[in-house]
Design a protein around this nucleic acid. Structure first.
Lengths: 355, 355
DNA sequence: GACAAAATCCAAAACGTTTCGGGCGGCCGT
DNA sequence: ACGGCCGCCCGAAACGTTTTGGATTTTGTC
């Protein structure tokens, strides 16, 4: 209705108006100027439904947020949305968001988005090692980019952060600061990032000449961090440092340490991953790794646009480094404590809980 | 292409297939069954662009997330998305999300969404007292529901939580527990929720027969909470309790209290609002108010569907109550401390900081 | 002044769906 | 046996845009 309106008031054909606004060179400069002016005057915006129908492109990309049943989603996804928002606007694409708990509901969301042709591409976050979403999207031929790698047979575009490298660094740092029993609080093994960070942890232990250490894993929430850390601290030879796959686990761990009568930081070091806002506001402030969200979002979107344009996914890979944010939760370990701890783990923890 | 495909394989017309799937009664039961079966077999989903174009409805609603330039958005919005997600799916609507920093960019996002006719309605969160978004949407005739009230001249549909009531309750609780100087850490006055909660605070003070108390306001972030709380604690007669308009402010305040050599809870009580996950994981655990997110989302979406159906907004209002979540940050005040404090504010704070 | 070439413009088709306005038999009532 | 009604089905138009393939006018060249 709107192209027609401009055409009528200017005494032109719909075709000419369309081509003038489209920037084609078979329309006179003067005409183009008139059309542009009138379009601006009435605030013309093309009807996206008509555009989509005609060009066969939806002009939007999709994201499915995993929202666990009772709980709320991970702040991670809010960062993702915030980071890609401006880039999408610049690319003239809209963002379709669905929220669904992982499982059947989640796959239904994916099916809805691609089968109703509402989107041209997808962003897939928090990849699993064997990820049915990836397999299905590949089968459908829908362009997508994952945030995180997978074990998929055929290659797909991905952007990931080097969790293994980060955790190698973390172990080296803890070892240098006098720790010998460095346990891992991990996310479930099905998540690629969990397996990746565990690999870095193991490599780090080996490189530092340290023995194997215990690991516990569960969905990354504060509750689970608390529970699993308590388990580890109750071991006959409890760890003196906890490496945590996510900050949410680490926050729970800090409380479990306090609940066990120890002082987090002084008695048991903690290092997290994500640099959530909360990391700077817990006691002690959490040493953690900051992910390069902006860079990841930029590359992910760049890859997605290339995939939509038909580029081969085999070369669209990008591994970014995480930055260590050193705070107070992993101070150097006092020399005498290192000895004492080997004899009697609880000797210097007088059972005083802060606050 | 797809309706046609079903029609061809079944030897029917496109019209009949469409009407069979649409559930019209002028198609034979046997035919409808055949069509349904074939549609299921090939996984037919109508092309939404074509549907939108034809029916003049977009089949989607929009939300614009305010994402402050450097920072990340408020967890509040993640909850909003998670809460409305399933309801939207049930209503057959999709969700279009844009992220934009408040200001000109934000209004451009609104304009894009409604002028390109990508949406049938909008959800507007975190209302301002004078809200240009509301005025503009009203002028455009685009259906919308706000999460929060405004001072808009003509009525609009809204769902809100009774912050004034919550803060009256909070003041009464603090007064009962022995506090007489209850300061307010507020969000900027332009936000309706800030003005609302301030009104509840003032009412509460008056009802309890307490004198006026100081207030400070800034964008709700941990940093600002820290800064403003420090200001209040440096006053000649510092407050013994801090009522905070949001949990993020409260978390910052807890740290400011510790930094000032006081013990949060024992020396200065704190009550927040929002019940963020972090509230349960700070020390001391934060007493706060939980908003009824699910109920708010349900009503907001119900109202929005009614508005889209053309219902008058004048009667679409809903004020919900917030629930007090009592934790450890506002314990009853020891009797002798109440006296001592009036003489020498710092007498019983020996300068020991926890952790 | 005539012809070709370039510069502008436009009619019509197409994208996939919904819906309006019939059309065609068969069944009922008389 | 005949008119009318009902049950079932379909052709065609429309939504607003882009694009194809000319059509018309202007300009350039000799």
């Amino acid at each position: 209705m709107s192209l027609r309106r401009i055409a009528r008031t200017l005494g032109l054909s719909i075709t000419t108006v369309s081509r003038a606004l489209g920037g084609f060179d078979d329309v006179a400069a003067a005409t183009r100027a008139r059309v542009r002016e009138e379009a601006a005057r009435i605030g013309y915006q093309p009807n996206r439904a008509a555009q989509s129908l005609r060009q066969g492109r939806a002009g939007a990309i999709g994201v499915v947020l995993p929202t666990p049943p009772g709980h709320f989603g991970d702040p991670f996804f809010l960062r993702l949305l915030a980071a890609i928002g401006p880039l999408l606007a610049r690319a003239g694409l809209d963002l379709l968001v669905m929220a669904a708990p992982p499982g059947a509901e989640e796959m239904r969301a994916y099916r809805h988005l691609v089968e109703s042709r509402r989107i041209d591409g997808m962003l897939v976050a928090r990849t699993r090692v064997e990820d049915e979403r990836v397999a299905w999207l590949q089968a459908q031929g829908m362009p997508f980019v994952t945030n995180g790698r997978t074990a998929a047979a055929s290659p797909h575009a991905w952007v990931d952060v080097d969790g293994a490298g980060a955790f190698r660094t973390a172990v080296r740092r803890l070892a240098t600061r006098g720790h010998r029993r460095i346990a891992l609080l991990n996310a479930p093994d099905q998540y690629f990032f969990a397996r990746d960070r565990a690999a870095g942890w193991r490599d780090g232990l080996e490189a530092a000449g340290l023995p194997e250490a215990p690991m516990r894993a569960a969905e990354p929430s504060e509750e689970n961090g608390h529970r699993l850390a308590a388990e580890l601290l109750a071991l006959p030879e409890p760890p003196t440092a906890l490496l945590c796959a996510t900050d949410r686990l680490a926050v729970g761990a800090l409380h479990a340490i306090a609940d066990s009568g120890r002082v987090a930081g002084r008695d048991v070091a903690v290092i997290g991953y994500d640099d959530l806002p909360a990391a700077g506001w817990v006691s002690p402030a959490l040493t953690t790794f900051a992910q390069p969200h902006e860079a990841a979002a930029t590359h992910a979107l760049d890859f997605l646009l290339r995939r939509i344009a038909g580029e081969d996914p085999a070369s669209l890979h990008m591994l970014l480094a995480a930055d260590l944010v050193a705070r107070a939760s992993d101070p150097p370990r006092a020399r005498e404590k290192q000895e004492a701890q080997l004899e009697d783990p609880h000797a210097e923890s007088p059972g005083i809980r802060p606050s």
